[in-house]
Amino acid sequence: MFDDVSSSSLRVAVAGLSARQSAIANNIANIETPGYRARKVEFEEALRGAVAKGMSPLGVAPQTRSSLEPTRLNGNNVNLDEETLSHIDTTMRYQLTLRAMDTKYSMLRDAIKGA
């Protein structure tokens, strides 16, 4: 009942977005650290592919990679503007995903109660 494609996809999305929020926080915290490379978290393409192929989304895990953006003289490549926009986007997606989960489970509760 809780392992259907939509529930599984929502759980994977929450985990991926949470990992992205952590990476963004680390990037911002290390904005002045010499040699620090910004981290990027990717999972959407793998999630989309798993669902399209009829595979379980639960096999998808967020992948973290170092940014290939150019570096400043100190070797750091964190861009505060980019991180701020990414934080806003990720927060909105996270809230939307949680709202979708809440709606799904509310419908399930109503069905169980017979409402």
Rank of each mutant, 00 (worst) to 15 (best):
R99Y: 04
A100T: 15
G59A: 03
E45Y: 10
S22T: 13
E45N: 10
R11F: 00
E83S: 06
A13N: 01
R39Y: 02
T103Y: 13
V60D: 09
P34D: 04
F43S: 03
E82M: 08
N30H: 05
S9I: 00
Y36W: 06
A61C: 02
A19R: 15
E45L: 11
S7H: 12
E42G: 04
E45Q: 11
L47V: 14
Q95W: 03
G54S: 06
S66T: 05
K113T: 01
H87Q: 07
M101N: 12
S18I: 02
Q63F: 03
S18A: 11
D110F: 00
S56R: 13
Q63I: 11
D4L: 11
N26E: 12
N30Q: 03
A115V: 01
I88R: 02
G114K: 00
N76A: 08
G35C: 04
L73V: 13
L85P: 01
S6Y: 14
L10A: 05
L85T: 10
A38K: 07
T84P: 04
A52M: 07
R65P: 07
T71E: 13
A115Y: 00
I112E: 00
D81A: 15
L17V: 00
R93I: 01
S106F: 07
K104H: 15
A23Q: 03
T64R: 03
G49F: 11
T90G: 05
H87G: 05
E44V: 10
A111G: 01
S18Y: 05
L98V: 04
R48L: 07
D81T: 14
R99M: 04
T33A: 12
Y105F: 15
M101K: 12
G75R: 09
S66H: 14
L17T: 00
A50K: 03
Q21F: 05
I88W: 03
A38S: 13
S86T: 13
R99H: 08
T97H: 08
S9M: 13
S86D: 08
H87M: 04
L108Y: 15
N79S: 14
A52Q: 09
G54L: 02
A29Q: 07
L10N: 01
V14Q: 00
I28E: 05
